[in-house]
Design a protein around this nucleic acid. Structure first.
Lengths: 237, 237
DNA sequence: TTCGCAAAGATCGTATGCAATCTTTTTCAT
DNA sequence: ATGAAAAAGATTGCATACGATCTTTGCGAA
């Protein structure tokens, strides 16, 4: 799970913002758990891996720390975030507050093109659930989150969309740490139901289903403190 | 309104994160309108003003751009954000979704100490409203936002608190650009009412009052596009 | 061995330098 | 004058360098 063992796709070509590209790759790696919570992300290694200077690597890590996916300690560096049970609760409390509203907004803006995009998304999700192997698991995690992000994009509020991107990514970390049953594949049926409600323009139902869905995901977590949160943190694990 | 004309309090001493300190100062300057939307914030000038290298200044500006208070364009630099009417609507739509929930959460966690803090906050707000002069106006703007931030801190969810910090700051920019009646001092009474509801533990009422309060603030805006949004943006003004 | 402490090594925070890009000014033909 | 093109200047993007801080290693005493 060391970052040096990771392989990152494609070369960061383009004269576009390279720090942003690196951030995206690292975020994906964190979200689908190729990088475990607590993993050290040193500026030098990141820079070497992506073939940029520390300056750019540092900027990418700073971005991730704003998103809460990375924790930085002064003079010690950056680590994949290791959310405490309390943080985990706050992530889901935030989602319970925001995401039902997003569902309502999205219900009022669904077009046939959106419906098609959702169907394709759910198909993909289903395919990965059926497959075996760790790569399929990763893709499944990613796809499950992408459903929520697609919903947020349909809602048409870029601010809320960014909030949701952060919350979905952090949720993945939380589930990785505290999830009981490996994955939230239980959610697939619920996703389907939510899409149905959206398709029918039934905003209230979509909203209620979303709330339940979030509750179910959180119910699958074991947020009891195990060895005392301080120790856990202190050991970076 | 040039940044070079600004004076920033205190020296950025401490071996703590200087970029963060600079970000805070710049944010305050933007929020209470010492820096107008569209103002150029060059790395060099910021660095000189705060007596740090461009590296640190750049980091501070990057942080502000994540918060949506600053817009950065590749190879062109950073500018105080100039939110479009659409962005303005999204800011308030986000607040309508989040802040009533925050009020509910806060209502369930109010302690006597919190009540005292709110009272002090409202007192200060009232004092600035009574005063004359541009400095009082600035302080009034700041205080009005601080009420909402205090509420968010009482709610006890640091994630939502950060979201609110961003939204309140961006609201100030929006009001500066699109506000009809100079300031939202109209809100003072409403703040008082909200506190009353919180004090009585009446979560539903606090939530409803907050929703109305946000609506009132937004109703004071004139979000009609004036000279075409493209032109406005193109002229950086 | 085991503990503490010092030296060596690694990593971070920040300043600075250079090329690339953008902006402004100057120049010149229409 | 006016407008286009070129030159000069300013600013950014990025790499690199160096001191400061942290981490690890090595060594000697209990």
């Amino acid at each position: 799970m060391n970052i040096a063992d990771q392989t990152f796709p494609a070369i960061e070509a383009a004269n576009e913002d390279r720090a942003q590209a690196i951030r995206d790759q690292l975020r994906d790696a964190i979200v689908d758990r190729r990088l475990a919570p607590g993993t050290k992300l040193s500026e030098g290694e990141v820079g070497t891996l992506f073939d940029v200077s520390r300056t750019v690597a540092r900027a990418a890590l700073q971005m991730l720390s704003f998103e809460g996916l990375v924790r930085t300690e002064r003079n010690r560096g950056a680590f994949v975030a290791n959310p405490s049970p309390e943080e985990a609760r706050q992530v889901f409390a935030s989602r319970r507050l925001i995401e039902p509203g997003i569902a309502i907004a999205a219900a009022g803006r669904m077009t046939p093109a959106h419906v098609a995009a959702f169907k394709a998304q759910l198909d993909e999700e289903g395919r990965f659930i059926a497959e075996r192997g760790p790569n399929a698991r990763r893709s499944e995690i990613k796809a499950s989150g992408d459903f929520h992000l697609l919903l947020a994009s349909v809602a048409g509020n870029v601010i809320l969309q960014r909030f949701m991107e952060e919350l979905v990514a952090r949720s993945s970390l939380v589930i990785a740490l505290y999830g009981r049953s490996g994955i939230s594949s239980c959610g697939h049926n619920e996703h389907t139901q939510i899409l149905e409600a959206l398709e029918n323009g039934n905003a209230e139902r979509a909203s209620a289903l979303m709330l339940h869905h979030i509750d179910h995901i959180e119910a699958d977590l074991d947020l009891r403190v195990r060895s005392g949160p301080a120790l856990r943190q202190a050991l970076e694990f």
